[in-house]
Design a protein around this nucleic acid. Structure first.
Ligand SMILES: [Mn+2]
Ligand SMILES: [Mn+2]
Ligand SMILES: [Zn+2]
Ligand SMILES: [Zn+2]
Lengths: 142, 142
DNA sequence: TAATACATTATATTTATTCTAAACTGTTGA
DNA sequence: TCAACAGTTTAGAATAAATATAATGTATTA
């Protein structure tokens, strides 16, 4: 299958050999039209549900980190005791639904360019991220 | 002293009795012109350095969380295994210096109003925060 | 095939955070 | 005054995410 080639390519470019555990991880992460957000725990659960093979936590962590380093995944800064990861590596922003603990993408086009007037000597901006926390809009009950 | 009154007031409004441990925490947090960012570990270290009294980790965590709930402190969403807290509770944004692991305030005035065109049905925006990651600007060496 | 390099895994470790339970303190009212 | 009580502090235990370790397994290649 052609898609397997892509995964092998991604793995090789990340400095990893394409083992069956890693290809399985790739399938879960990249074999879909839609990008998504996940925690390591959730990723492990998806793999367990789909797969006939066992993949250890250490391998999942290692592979995810290798992909982050290479730019195939992004880590999302959230105030939580656990990291969120994103298969959408384009520049974009997020809603974070505090009630459902869920991240929702905001396309770059949906936010005006964030213009920061302040500068720090000797430093340059590497990335700018907007996080908008959302909650239920319980309209005043008429 | 007048400032002690303020701390007692803050504590009472947070539903906490003004004990000497809690007043000590208040002094470290609020007895300064400048606001600042801190981790729990750092806060404990400051207290240890200044104080003649011992304050346990549990008390520090509990007090900080009570103040957050009341709005006297803010938690800053950062991609880290540890939480950052802010004594500046006004609406503002941040630089995060990835090399020095340091937060720097950006006044609200220094960022144009972030206008998000996307909406989520049934949800309203509670807060919008911008985090700009910064790194050393190593100019191409002439 | 044998040697070697790389991977996977179970398990241990680390570390931030939260929980627990016992000891302590300050307030109250008989 | 002082016993009872509510609330507090604390040391240490528990929890959970993340990382490290080291033994075993697998793939590559000479
Ligand atoms: Mn990480
Ligand atoms: Mn918290
Ligand atoms: Zn996203
Ligand atoms: Zn700040």
């Amino acid at each position: 299958m052609a898609y397997a080639e892509q995964y092998i390519d991604k793995l090789r470019k990340s400095g990893l050999r394409p083992t069956k555990q890693r290809i399985k991880i790739c399938k879960v992460l990249f074999n879909t039209d839609k990008t998504f957000h996940f925690t390591i725990k959730e990723l492990v659960k998806i793999i367990e549900n789909q797969a006939n093979i066992k993949v250890s936590l250490a391998t999942v962590y290692n592979t995810v980190h290798a992909f982050i380093k290479k730019g195939y995944l992004k880590e999302i800064p959230l105030n939580a005791s656990q990291s969120y990861y994103d298969t959408n590596v384009t520049h974009h922003h997020h809603f974070f639904d505090e009630e459902e603990n869920r991240l929702i993408d905001i396309h770059q086009d949906d936010v005006d360019e964030v213009n920061i007037k302040k500068t720090i000597p000797g430093k340059k901006i590497k990335s700018v991220e907007v996080i908008a926390k959302i909650v239920s809009d319980n309209q005043s009950q008429k």
